[in-house]
Simulated scan of single mutants.
Amino acid sequence: MTESFPSSARDQTLLRRVNELSILAVLRGQAARPLREISDTTGLSWRTTQVVAEILDEHGWLVETEADDGSGGRRAVGRPARRYRFRAEAGHVVGLDVGTHQVQVFVADLAATIVGRHRLEVSPTDDAPTRLAAVERTLLGALADAGLEPQAVWAAAMGASGVVGPDGTVTASALLPGWRGLNPAKALDSVLPCTVEVANDANLAALAERWRGHRAETMIYVLAGARLGTGLVIGGQLHRGAAGAAGEIGALREIGWHDAAERLAATALGLDSPTGRGNAATRVFQAARDEDPAALAAVDRFAADIARGVTAMVLTIDPELVVLGGGFAHAADLLVPRLAVELAATCLHTPRVEGSVLGDDAVALGALRLALDTVDQRMTSLDSNTPLTHGAIRGW
């Protein structure tokens, strides 16, 4: 990295920002490191590293720590090497998942470590005010679990079923009563000091998969459960489209996605179920594992329904990977091989098909990632008018 003297005060400010970001990038998410190691990694001189680290320490981004010399707590002879770590606890982000049956909230520090969480069961028939009240209670429960006040939150994101416009307004939602035309983030204005970004749940699940699951530069994530939806990752980036409606292939009624889950569940009516426990789809999947002919036929039909919509998208974006997630991810052993066969029969290039391992956490994790990305964008801005201070990065 060059350290040549800039020709203007503005260039000096820009160079200082670049040096600060270089050091933060080396330390963020890592253990404390000595100055010499930070200097070697960034390519900055030891003196520049020292000066910048001290500035970042003063601003609350770094903290100097005791040297670990392997002496069991005894200080080594002579002056120990100065070490710094990133203060991940300086700020926090929130990820919210507003579903039909539950609301889930994660709280994480700036190193993406989850420090608080809370989950609350809700009813599919809850109206918008009732569900939003549950969202607020869940959020406050997660913050209490983390031992934090709302003022500690720098950014937040919320996932919800339906088409979400660029301004956070839900323009269509088949599963959440009363949410069409609603901007659910506004309900949290009195609770959180930061803006809450709202996004489609399948999109956030795709973002989480790209982050902590099956990684691919181009991917189709299928959210399979009470409904079918998709999230798209293209070129390593979440693709939402001009109005947030990318991937809503189920709008074509001819594909059959709108009632595929209902037709699958209807098969349970003909199954022997002495206990009556578990939802209908789960019973069908279990019966298929037990080689029940009707259940096997229903699973085959459901996989074909999924493939009908996914094929159209595979032929459009030619992805490396298709991931099956959502509430039916527990049936990946049945659905993934069938989906792979269906795609191989129709696609010019058959992508890899995998089941998600993120379970019910996918949407909340994706919301957490989106909130962290918001903080990252502020932190890494090279705008000399935005100082690298906590107040500026919070964006309050």
Rank of each mutant, 00 (worst) to 15 (best):
F5P: 01
F5G: 02
R10H: 14
D11F: 05
Q12H: 13
V26M: 03
L27V: 03
P34L: 00
D40W: 03
D40C: 04
T41W: 01
V52Y: 01
A53H: 00
E58L: 10
H59A: 15
W61A: 11
L62F: 09
E66Q: 11
D68W: 00
D69R: 02
R74A: 15
A76S: 14
A76C: 04
R79V: 01
Y84H: 05
E89D: 15
D97Q: 02
H101E: 15
Q104P: 01
Q104W: 07
V105N: 00
A108T: 06
D109H: 07
A111Q: 11
I114Q: 15
H118T: 02
R119C: 11
S123L: 14
T130R: 07
R131I: 08
A134T: 10
E136G: 06
E136D: 14
R137S: 15
T138F: 08
L139N: 09
D145A: 14
D145H: 09
E149T: 13
G159Y: 01
S161R: 01
S161T: 12
T169S: 13
V170Y: 04
T171W: 04
S173I: 05
A174M: 12
L182H: 10
L182W: 09
L182Y: 09
N183D: 15
K186P: 01
L188Y: 01
S190F: 03
V191K: 05
L192R: 05
V198E: 01
A199Q: 13
A199K: 05
N200Q: 10
D201A: 07
N203S: 14
A205K: 04
L207C: 08
W211Y: 09
G213V: 04
I220L: 13
V222D: 04
V222S: 05
L223D: 14
A226Q: 11
G231M: 09
V233H: 07
G236L: 10
L238N: 07
L238D: 09
R240F: 07
G241S: 07
G241M: 08
A243N: 14
G244P: 07
A245S: 15
I249N: 04
A251K: 09
L252P: 02
R253W: 12
E254L: 11
E254Q: 11
H258R: 13
D259P: 04
D259L: 06
E262N: 03
R263F: 08
R263C: 08
T267P: 06
T267S: 11
T267L: 05
R277D: 15
A281L: 06
V284D: 02
A287Y: 06
A288V: 09
D290L: 12
A297W: 09
A297Q: 14
D300I: 01
A307W: 00
G309C: 06
T311V: 06
T311S: 02
V314E: 04
T316R: 09
T316I: 10
D318L: 04
E320D: 15
E320Q: 13
G325M: 02
F328N: 07
P337A: 04
A345T: 11
H349M: 12
V353N: 03
E354P: 01
S356M: 06
S356L: 04
L358H: 03
G359P: 07
G359R: 10
V363P: 00
A364M: 02
R369L: 06
R369I: 11
L372A: 12
T380Q: 14
T386Q: 14
A392W: 06
A392F: 09
G395N: 05
W396F: 10
